[in-house]
Design a protein around this nucleic acid. Structure first.
Lengths: 247, 247
DNA sequence: GACGCGCCTTGATCTTGGTCATGTCGGCTG
DNA sequence: CAGCCGACATGACCAAGATCAAGGCGCGTC
């Protein structure tokens, strides 16, 4: 595991820090653990740095415990029998993944691939079990997480059945803008995409060539401009409308 | 509300029965309630019979409480801004729906339409809250339900991105066969579809015409035979393979 | 510098599925 | 019985994307 190089878009964190001062903890299930419980997690967790392209767990692996992303970007992929892969979701710092396989005691249904240099903690099954028994709110937090994931996937699913590639493409751009967007020097809404073209394609069930064509098309329509991974939105109104985003 | 007519494929149930002897209760979240808790549900619940085409709740409605399907078939639909509708899921007896809106205190994201004559109980928010406080296992049951729904929707979502219409069509037929299938006099695997063509189309994000064409196509390939709503599977092996079902 | 490689783009062509128009069948109603 | 309506089927045509093939560009390595 190399230390992530300069220029990478990630929070620089000391991997040997403890949970009590983890910048991401407040958005995780662990947010209402007591000091003693937190100390248990600290003692139990294995913190590691991962390079892009590496794997946290494979589809079919036994779900030994829970991964807690401190920083970076993790993609959850699903592979079907014919080798087609879909990128179901991207998870960044402050998210736990693998909780479903833990709770059902079944194998992972997805495959977790590191997309950008990441720091991820792993908490082994037996410790999670102890924590769940000790802290009743923890179970509620997992329920809440499951419900949020469910809402989001269900929306994505409905969208995949009713909207065109273009609409879905614009939608993922808007999701990235919501998470990472800013205004550039000229005041234009701008966002740096964290993933490459082929991965964008996998997010909407398209081929990479279609993404290229969609980019050209929406640029010619004057909706936005994409250079490399920088997206400048020129007509936010129209983009939101075509993406099917409600106000 | 008329009493469902003869010939409909539904469990005949006295709508004024109590939960303790409800045939569907063992598969619901209420399965481990105590006698006293069950009595509370009995007192609180409103049981009604619904005709096909009627609505349990609309997308956007406030999620007042939880619906518990005793018998019949309920479709959960999602409508987008342009009026396109997707049939996300079918729920039958022994399932609770609307728990997400209850738990998040937000509006229903979907729209629940009655597909076949159904008997459905409604339990008002305040009673569910009392039950959740009284019985800790109940929360776990909802967590379990959310996780099962999540797994299923995620699989459907991945399938919608990676597989063709034909594969997805065969897949829904297999799901129906799994739930309702039987062997006819000649021993052929057979299933009576509970919904019409247009609704099959909505389940896979297609148009009704495409379903007609798919039917003709798979019949000509010798995979199966469909007359009206009766499906006879001739080559189960091939159907399962093309549906992407793993053994 | 030459080469290879990954990522991206583009064009040509083909396939899939959508759209539109029309027709049939069966059941229901005046 | 005539007329109507909803569900389904079918054909002709069109459009959105996939597929296949080729090439450009940036970057690391020998």
């Amino acid at each position: 595991m190399d230390y992530p190089g300069p220029g990478m878009n990630m929070t620089q964190c000391n991997p040997s820090h403890n949970c009590a001062n983890c910048p991401s903890r407040q958005t995780t299930e662990w947010r209402d653990l007591t000091g003693a419980e937190l100390a248990l997690v600290d003692q139990a967790k294995q913190t590691r740095m991962f390079d892009p392209g590496t794997t946290l767990y494979d589809q079919g692996d036994e779900g030994g415990g829970i991964h807690c992303i401190q920083s970076g970007l993790i993609g959850l992929r699903r592979l079907d029998e014919d080798g087609n892969s879909a990128l179901l979701r991207l998870c960044s710092g402050g998210t736990t993944i693998g909780y479903r396989a833990y709770l059902t005691k079944e194998a992972h249904l997805n495959w977790a691939e590191v997309m950008t240099p990441s720091i991820v903690c792993f908490i082994e099954r037996s410790y999670v079990t102890r924590l769940l028994a000790a802290n009743l709110q923890l179970g509620e937090r997992f329920l809440q997480h499951a419900i949020e994931d469910l809402s989001e996937v269900e929306s994505d699913y409905a969208r995949s059945m009713t909207r065109s590639m273009k609409s879905r493409f614009l939608h993922v751009l808007m999701v990235f803008y919501e998470q990472l967007g800013y205004r550039d020097d000229t005041g234009s809404p701008t966002v740096e995409l964290p993933i490459k073209r082929g991965e964008l394609a996998e997010m909407i069930g398209a081929q990479p060539e279609s993404i290229s064509r969609l980019i050209r098309q929406v640029q010619m329509e004057g909706l936005l401009q994409i250079d490399d991974r920088r997206v400048q939105i020129h007509d936010m109104e129209a983009v939101l409308r075509k993406a099917g985003v409600t106000f």
